[in-house]
Write a protein that binds this DNA or RNA. Structure first.
Length: 887
RNA sequence: GCGCGGGUAGCCAAGCCAGGAAACGGCGCAGCGCUUAGGACGCUGUCCCGUAGGGGUCCGCCGGUUCAAAUCCGGUCCCGCGCACCA
């Protein structure tokens, strides 16, 4: 076999079997607080795609790295196995969702194994098994007992194509499209089960600040979604022309300071008062049923014959019904302040309502604020109140507080955009909601001993199959024993994924959803990795569940995921891969052609995990060749041949090995695999040069190989095992110890910088001086007193550095040279920093001299200052040796 | 409109949180080497000027803080993402 390729298939199969046999990735129940590394479990759609491969390679590499660092690691995998696509697929193929799902799981599990992902398969879960979804039902009844579940008649998002309702979070964009099928969503009124996530609104939003291991973007998206706003609720008395009292209508406002500028009042088209008016007022009827366009950009409205009394001024203002007022925002009614709100301004201009300025820009001067001109557009900033009675002169902030405090019936109010989570779905392939409807008792929870309520056999029908499952549906009331029917709705599958990370801890526990002691020990998830598309829904629901379980089920953690990584997309020519575009790359094909290690390494080295990157076949081939070269390098190694190691090149290689470890370790810790891997690949390059240019010292060379293999092991586990074995390693590299370095990263990088700078200087001199054929290159290390002087200068805060330096006799006796260097130091003293120690600098240069010799084809000597001519040595500085080139 | 993130050499992109070297790396381009890993590999160059390591200019734009700014602060213009007749 040529070194262009290697028998990846044989190697990968061999080690996958060996890992299996040795249960390398098994996490025993008795380990203490393992590092919990988790990738978002996949929906079993049939085949792994590149997004999965990237996601799970990230977690696998990190899990392997932590294991080599000596941690116990929990790295499980499971299946988000309920959901509509299985139902659709079952219909198309004339099978049933269960069989189809388990077929898909089989296939995908096989593909995961062929990728070499090291999961503890004994913790595998599939949410469509009664053993799992029983606990969804159990949580539902527990939450019901705690008052976290409510059934209400609600306007819901209905997707006619999926024939089910959707949560607000599942409706996308201005066009309101279904997140799954991209069809327009309609509104329907249905009895629905809700989980009261809004009970946790404040905690969910407040605690975002603490989630420092999460990306800002996700944190911000959650803040936006919860949408908390502080304001004031103001009571407006609404009356009709005949004195007919419509009662008090509260309006929420964040700008109570503008209340003197309220020139109209507006009600939503479906507000209860509007509905009264529709019956008696033809104009209102006409508007509500024919003109109102809540989705349009134009604010439309109709004047009513009602008036509202401004609770602060006592003024009566006209009441409109307007389509931009939304019944589910605030109270469904608002005070219109056209002088200070853009939309109100547009509406007032259109309807001919007064526009009055009551807040002026704060000029910061004492001569009194001047009311802004609001005839053309509103002034929406905070400022100073004008035309506002006793409140004139106050700044907006103070005025809001004062008005709220002074006004009868007004109160501070907090508003949220977050709504309760409607979990009812009119589909078959989900967790049956464990409720029985009794004519006499109403909805009754299924008793715990009757759980799980298992799904009946699938019936291929157009509506909800559960509605057709008569035998299943008919039952008796647990309370009164009368004939009753089962709830036929199933749960949103996001219920399943809101706690699956707990189930992995004790997947087979028969009598509880999770083992409290072990879960408290093992949670939270240390590193969670998945797509940004779950920034709101899954992650918010999981946070909610965790908090509810902390309150009611003894979970001692209130946040599930400490660190979150939202991985970037795998693209092809800048575009997301998608089946519809037909620009996908099959992971299976890549594994067959190049092997899993190549696919994994290519992906991890291509970019930081959170960035998008382009898949390129050329990159894959180049990665494959690298692995082939590495394999060759290891196999050509002969421990019984080679030099004594008593040479500078060996020292250089030894330093580089340490440097690689120091850098790669830090980068693995930060999950910046691309940088860590570059380090590993450069080390392999260095070793190759070592082999080709010198007579390698077997022990150093072997250490280099062993280090390179380990640095790559988290990402290319199969070949790493093969080569580790080849090098005579004990056991598995997967369980081997992570290499340690003799240097810290800073020193290693200073060394590299010194060598690189010195070589660069030589190049410049050769070029600028036009030296054609250098014969000898002397690199003269700085005299020690200069290092001492630099050290003093860095530490010193004395005004006169020179005199402080001259206080040192061994510096003073350098005479003019000391004075001159002292002045240099004085000139840049604020920018000074410590270099390598003199001996370290000398040794680093000696070790690197061969690079200069090789590059310039001249002999290179590294000499100490006292061995060189003074006029050369004097130009040397710490970190910058003098250079003398002889032609 | 609101919020967040970002604008760095021909292109991609690190550095910014913790200010101190024309600013990591990759691609592309150019030169050299290679009894060889060959539609590769290694070395070097790639802002301008310079016959001994020097000088100039530079991180979207404008301004500020500082001995010192890609980095901190304010303003402004573009790009991306999320939310949005949200009161």
């Amino acid at each position: 076999m040529s070194d262009e390729s290697y028998d990846h298939a044989a190697i990968e199969t061999r080690w996958q079997e060996a890992w299996d046999d040795a249960a390398v990735y098994r996490t025993p129940d008795d380990v203490e607080d393992p590092t919990y590394v988790l990738g978002m479990y996949p929906y079993p759609s049939g085949k792994l795609h590149m997004g999965h491969v990237r996601n799970y390679t990230i977690t696998d590499a990190y899990a392997r790295y932590r294991r080599m660092q000596g941690d116990d690691v929990l790295h499980p995998m499971g299946w988000d196995a309920f959901g509509l696509p299985a139902e659709n697929a079952a219909k198309e193929r004339d099978t049933n969702p269960r069989d189809w799902t388990f077929d898909c799981i089989d296939t995908m599990k096989g593909q995961m194994k062929s990728m070499g992902f090291g999961y503890d398969w004994e913790r595998e879960i599939a949410t469509c098994t009664p053993d799992y979804y029983k606990w969804n039902q159990w949580f539902f009844t527990r939450f019901y007992e705690e008052g976290l579940v409510e059934r209400r008649d609600a306007d819901v998002n209905w997707c006619p194509s999926c024939e089910t309702v959707l949560a607000d979070e599942q409706v996308e964009g201005e066009e309101e499209l279904c997140w799954r099928c991209d069809n327009p969503v309609e509104q329907r009124e249905l009895d629905q089960w809700f989980l009261q996530i809004t009970d946790y609104s404040d905690e969910l939003v407040d605690y975002i600040d603490e989630l420092e291991g999460w990306p800002d973007s996700v944190r911000q998206m959650q803040r936006n979604w919860i949408g908390r706003q502080y304001g004031t609720r103001l009571p407006f008395d609404v009356t009709g022309p005949d004195g007919h009292d419509h009662g008090t209508v509260e309006a929420f406002t964040t700008r109570a300071d503008t209340v003197y500028g309220a020139t109209f009042f507006a009600l939503a088209p479906d507000h209860p008062i509007t509905e009264e008016l529709v019956a008696e007022d033809d104009d209102v009827h006409e508007f509500v049923h024919h003109e109102a366009d809540p989705d349009g950009d134009e604010p439309n409205g109709v004047e009513t014959d009602l008036t509202a009394t401004n609770p602060v001024t006592g003024e009566e203002i006209p009441v409109y019904v307007a389509d931009f007022v939304l019944s589910d925002v605030g109270t469904g009614a608002l005070m219109g302040v056209p002088g200070h709100d853009d939309r109100d301004h547009e509406f007032a201009s259109k309807m001919g309502v007064d526009i009055a300025p009551v807040v002026a820009p704060d000029t910061g001067e004492d001569d009194g604020p001047e009311a802004p001109d609001v005839s053309e557009s509103a002034f929406t900033d905070d400022g100073v109140l004008v035309n506002s009675g006793e409140y004139s002169g106050l700044d907006s902030e103070s005025a809001r507080e004062a008005i709220t405090a002074d006004t009868a019936g007004a109160e501070e109010a907090t508003q949220y955009r977050l709504r309760d989570w409607g979990i009812s779905r009119q589909r078959y392939w989900g967790t049956p909601i464990p409720v029985i409807h009794c004519d006499d008792c109403g909805p009754v929870m299924v008793p715990e001993e009757d759980l799980p309520v298992e799904l009946p056999e699938f019936i291929n029908t157009t509506g909800n199959p559960l509605d057709e499952a008569e035998e299943w549906k008919q039952t008796t009331c647990p309370d009164c024993g009368a004939d009753a029917v089962r709830e036929t709705d199933t749960m949103d599958t996001f219920v399943d994924s809101s706690w699956y990370f707990l189930r992995y801890v004790s997947p087979d526990l028969p009598d509880a959803p999770f083992d409290p002691a072990r879960t408290n020990d093992w949670m939270p998830v240390d590193q969670y990795v998945g797509g940004i598309e779950h920034a709101v829904m899954h992650l918010l629901y999981s946070r909610f569940f965790t908090k509810a379980l902390a309150d009611y089920e003894g979970l001692e953690h209130r946040e599930p995921f400490t660190n979150l990584l939202a991985q970037g997309m795998v693209q092809l020519e800048g575009e997301a891969m998608s089946k519809s575009k037909g620009n996908t790359v099959s992971p299976q094909r890549i594994v067959e052609e190049y092997g899993a290690d190549t696919a994994r390494l290519f992906m991890m080295q291509a970019a930081q995990p959170e960035r998008d990157f382009d898949w390129t076949e050329e990159g894959v081939r180049s990665t494959y060749r690298f692995l082939g070269r590495l394999k060759d390098l290891v196999q050509s190694f002969d421990p019984d041949a080679g030099g004594s190691g008593d040479d500078p090149i060996t020292d250089y290689v030894a330093d580089e090995i340490d440097a690689s470890v120091a850098v790669a370790t830090e980068e693995y810790d930060d999950l910046t695999f691309n940088v860590a891997l570059r380090e590993a690949q450069e080390l392999v390059g260095t070793l190759r040069q070592y082999r080709d240019y010198a007579d390698p010292h077997p022990e150093t060379f072997e250490r280099g190989l062993a280090v390179a293999v380990r640095l790559l092991a988290p990402v290319t586990p199969h070949l790493a095992e093969e080569l580790y074995d080849e090098l005579g390693g004990d056991g598995f590299v997967a369980e081997a110890e992570w290499p340690s370095a003799d240097v810290d990263r800073e020193t290693a990088e200073k060394r590299r910088q010194l060598v690189e700078n010195t070589r660069e200087d030589v190049r410049q001199i050769v070029e600028v001086a036009g030296i054609e054929n250098p014969e000898r290159i002397d690199i003269v290390v700085t005299p020690e007193w200069k290092f001492d002087a630099l050290g003093i200068a860095v530490e010193s805060d004395a005004d006169n550095l020179i005199s402080e330096l001259m206080g040192e006799s061994h510096i003073r006796e350098q005479g003019d040279a000391a004075a001159s260097y002292g002045q240099d130091l004085q000139a840049e003293r604020e920018a000074l920093s410590m270099t390598l120690a003199p001996e370290d600098e000398y040794e680093s240069l000696v070790a690197a001299a061969w690079l200069v010799e090789r590059e310039f084809d001249a002999s290179a000597r590294v000499v100490r200052a006292d061995e060189a001519d003074d006029d050369v040595a004097n130009t040397a500085e710490p970190g910058r040796p003098a250079i003398d080139i002889v032609e």
